[in-house]
Write a protein that binds this DNA or RNA. Structure first.
Lengths: 343, 343
DNA sequence: CGCCACGGCTGCAACGTTGTAACTCACGCT
DNA sequence: AGCGTGAGTTACAACGTTGCAGCCGTGGCG
């Protein structure tokens, strides 16, 4: 059995509370008493019982992180960042998976008994919509990530999807691309990353006075690599030609790039490609993939900071925070494209 | 404030203990009482306080998972599998990162106060060695994963590295490869994945009576994609020729494959490539990458099962469990290679 | 008829910690 | 001498739960 305050107190010949005071570096303790207690602590190898402390204080020092799937690189990298940010705040992270966009599981997670021992939750939904916003009125501190649910009663940390997508598209336009395909649109989606990035794409086209061609919109309900490949293959098969591709995620872009190359086209000479997310692996594809760093580290830091503030009871929830983004120019959009000979 | 047993008891006009009995589906309760208590529970929205229950019972229902980095795909997928396996056992997972092979951090993790509220730990070290085995004698249930520490006093779940590496090499040999390079050896390593996989490689060569050529051993201390690319580039730069490459991990193999293609060689026609780990993304590379599924799901299931047994106090620790492996034959090793014209 | 068994329920103590109030000195001031 | 002050320490209660012993009443059995 592990030693308790009582054991230490008995050995040191003081009261339990004095030992507790020593553990907490309380000021008014005689040096002699302090060292006697310290010795007893060392001798018994005493470690405070966190569970008892939690019961007493109402805090566990644990925060929950609910996200779709760790095996998706984006969420693996996000969890990495959240855990590191939490560690800096002396918190530890309990990770739950909701599956890839399973709305019911996401909603169930919000009232899961498994989260009881958590001081608060960072929640990244993929299946809920703004219609479900009122479900975010939970009786514990909550910070929501992502683009699925807006207008809820919780703090919200998100990225500048429209502006970042506009910048990505603009990069292709500046490089000389005139027929730019997107990969990753969702058929029935009004909110969410896909809709916002599509909006940014259209804004960039409009700014450059380029026409919007529905044939250049590749639909992909899931955003795995295979989905990007299939969408690209389908587009190429219909004979639609493009000189630039904007993948709404890096995995989509990498899948699409594979199909472009398999079709005998060169990247970036024939088709330039840019992704979104700045996954580590984009630095090592062939060619290296240009992408958007939408501020994942900053999102993790901000989410943890907001959650800590909410746990401490400071500030009112409901604010929306946008992270900064960066365009990462790599090989897949390198070079300058001359005037289009076919135009 | 959340409702407690006391509140429910007062509302239902029964004792606290009766409410507790209802919550726990205790048998001998009059239906009338039961429904009255149930109604009070619903009215107040009572949820048991897990922290208090933990203090009383000594169990938290939380297990720890300590691994190097979630942003490495292998560990992201491992964590995914562990969390799913834990969920089936009604456990929730607290994830800690030790960094990529930081021995001191790994050792510190074993006695971290942050794990106090955990019933046990699944630990995947990357920097420790068998010299540190006695450090695994911790006063809580522990299951160790991986190839770094053998002979410790904890349960151990691992993969059949030697046999699986032999099978991977054998696949290349059967395909007709005669000069097979490996990527991912570590200079100073006696134990660990690299050493074991190198041993399997050498056994397969010996079986086929092929010579072992040190020039074909590519060193890579880290196993990111960039390390595989660099090792391969270095080997190609020295003029060493090979017709097959066995990457000790999928990321290494994918990095190596990129360099092979960048050098103007075709995969699999000029050089066949096989990896190790069966990462999801190997299904979507160009060409798709043959690899070894070393039994990640089974490892996660077994680790959770053993930990549960140890928490329950059943069985003595110290056993080593080996997962089954599968060879996944894909495009990167497709086709039959004729007799080597240069031979 | 007396006793036991048992269904149905209650009260108390305990898990290990911490906040609050209070106690005991020693000291210095009036 | 009497009193306030504050350092050093302690006792007690409480956080919300569950195990245990035990209470009361009813019905069956010898």
């Amino acid at each position: 059995m592990a030693a308790t305050l009582r054991d230490v107190a008995a050995l040191a010949g003081v009261s339990i509370k004095t030992v507790s005071n020593v553990v907490h570096d309380f000021e008014h303790i005689r040096p002699a008493t302090r060292s006697r207690v310290r010795a007893a602590i060392d001798e018994l190898g005493y470690k405070p019982n966190i569970t008892a402390r939690s019961l007493r204080s109402g805090r566990t020092g644990v925060i929950g992180l609910a996200l779709p799937e760790l095996s998706l690189s984006y969420f693996g990298e996000l969890a990495d960042a959240v855990i590191r940010a939490a560690e800096r705040a002396n918190l530890v992270v309990l990770v739950e998976q909701t599956g890839g966009g399973d709305r019911d599981r996401e909603i169930a997670m919000l009232s899961s008994a498994r989260l009881q021992m958590t001081d608060g939750l960072i929640f990244s939904p993929l299946g809920m919509t703004s219609d479900d916003a009122q479900l975010l009125a939970v009786p514990y501190p909550l910070v929501v990530l992502g683009e699925r649910v807006f207008g809820g009663p919780a703090d919200h940390v998100t990225m500048q999807n429209v502006a970042a997508a506009r910048a990505a598209t603009r990069l292709l336009i500046d490089r000389g691309c005139r027929r730019i395909a997107v990969i990753g649109a969702r058929a029935d989606e009004a909110v969410g990353s896909a809709a916002l990035r599509l909006q940014g794409y259209r804004e960039a086209l409009a700014e450059a006075e380029l026409p919007f061609d529905p044939e250049l919109v590749g639909v992909a309900e899931q955003w795995h690599r295979v989905d990007g490949a299939e969408a690209m293959r389908a587009m190429l098969a219909t004979g639609v030609r493009c000189d630039g591709v904007f993948g709404f995620s890096d995995t989509l872009a990498l899948g699409a790039m594979r199909e472009i190359q398999a079709a005998g086209l060169r990247v970036p000479e024939d088709v330039a490609v840019i992704g979104f997310d700045a996954l580590d692996e984009t630095r090592f594809s062939l060619p290296t993939l240009s992408t958007i760093d939408a501020g994942r580290e900053q999102i993790a830091d901000t989410a943890v900071r907001l959650l800590v503030e909410r746990i401490a009871g400071r500030s009112e929830p409901g604010a929306v925070h946008f992270a900064d983004f960066t365009v990462l120019q790599r090989e897949s959009t390198a070079g300058e494209r001359g005037p289009d000979p076919a135009a």
